[in-house]
C-alpha cells in the first residue's frame, strides 16, 4: 500500500473451502480508493465465490477480508451493505414485481431513522419524504425517472442491469462490486456500459471491483487486473502486463476449460 493511495478493500490469504473443494485458495488482493479493479478468470475459477466472501454471504474458512481497515468477519450481508459495500448480481436480482421507484426506494431505507410504529402511524413524514426525494433524484441522475412506475420485470434486459446498478448506488456505497455487468450485452451496449462505469465512479466517488468476461471492457477501464484460476491467483497487474502474461493466456486458451 502506497502512502498516497488509500486502501479500501483488502483480502488477505482468504481460503474458502466447501467440503473437499477449495473454491478459493489463498487469495490476497487490494482495491484502492477511486480505482477500477477487475477480477477475471475462466468459468468456475471462484470469482463469484470471492464476491460472496466479501459481502458476507459466505464466511471464509480462513484469512481476512477488511473494508477501510475494519475486519468484516462475522458481519451479515446487510451489515456489510450498511458499512458501504454494494453489489449487483451475475443473474439480475431485482424485486421483479415492484416498480422501478420502489426498487430504489427500498434500498434507501438502509439509512432511515424510523421504527415500525412511527412508519405505520405516519409520525415521521420527514423521513419518508427524504427517502422519496433522494430516490427521485437518483432516478433522474440515472435517466430512469420516466420509467419510475414501470414494473421492474417488464423492463428490457439492459435497463434491468442499469436499474440494478442504480439500486446499488441508492445504498450510498463507497465500494461497488459488479458481478459480470456486461453479461448478455451486445458490443454497442458493452461500450455504453464501459463509459457508464467510469462515469458513476467519478460522479459518486466510488471504488469499483468487478468480475467481467468482456475483455474489451476490462482492458479499457481497469487500472489493475487480478486473474483467478481454480481458486488461485495466477497473475496480477495492469492491463498491458496481463495481456502479455503467458500463464493467463494458458489459462484462457490452453486449459481444458472453456472461457
Amino acid at each position: 500500500m502506497n502512502d498516497n493511495t488509500q486502501n479500501v478493500l483488502s483480502m488477505q490469504n482468504v481460503v474458502m473451502q466447501f467440503g473437499g473443494v477449495r473454491a478459493i485458495d489463498n487469495l490476497s488482493l487490494d482495491v484502492n480508493k477511486g480505482e477500477i479493479v477487475a477480477l477475471i478468470g475462466p468459468n468456475g475459477a471462484g470469482k463469484t465465490t470471492a464476491f460472496n466472501c466479501i459481502t458476507g454471504i459466505y464466511t471464509p474458512t480462513s484469512g481476512m477480508v477488511s473494508f477501510n481497515g475494519k475486519n468484516l468477519k462475522g458481519n451479515s450481508p446487510d451489515e456489510i451493505t450498511r458499512l458501504g459495500i454494494a453489489r449487483t448480481f451475475q443473474n439480475i436480482r431485482l424485486f421483479s414485481n415492484l416498480t422501478v421507484f420502489d426498487n430504489v426506494l427500498i434500498a434507501k431505507h438502509l439509512r432511515a431513522k424510523d421504527n415500525v410504529f412511527t412508519a405505520t402511524l405516519r409520525l415521521n413524514h420527514a423521513e419518508e419524504k427524504r427517502m422519496r426525494e433522494e430516490t427521485a433524484q437518483l432516478l433522474k441522475e440515472q435517466g430512469l425517472y420516466e420509467l419510475k412506475d414501470e414494473i421492474a420485470s417488464s423492463l428490457p434486459y439492459g435497463l434491468q442491469r442499469h436499474l440494478e446498478i442504480a439500486r446499488a448506488l441508492a445504498t450510498q456505497p463507497e465500494l461497488l462490486l459488479l458481478d459480470e455487468p456486461a453479461a448478455g450485452m451486445n458490443p454497442q451496449e458493452t461500450q455504453e456500459l464501459t463509459d457508464f462505469i467510469v462515469k458513476i465512479r467519478d460522479q459518486y466517488k466510488l471504488s469499483i471491483f468487478m468480475i467481467e468476461h468482456h475483455m474489451d471492457l476490462v482492458m479499457q477501464i481497469s487500472e489493475r487486473i487480478y486473474v483467478l484460476n481454480f481458486g488461485k491467483l495466477i497473475a496480477q497487474g495492469t492491463p498491458d502486463e496481463i495481456q502479455s502474461n503467458p500463464e493467463v493466456i494458458e489459462a484462457y486458451l490452453g486449459g481444458s476449460e472453456d472461457a
Partner: peptide, 26 residues
Amino acid sequence: LLINSSYGRMFKAVREDEIAAEAMGI
C-alpha cells in the same frame, strides 16, 4: 398502513428476493 409504509416495502423486498434484500441492507 403498515403494508404501505417503508416497513411494508421491506416485507415485499424479502418476498421478492431474499438475497437481493440482504444486499440492500435489510
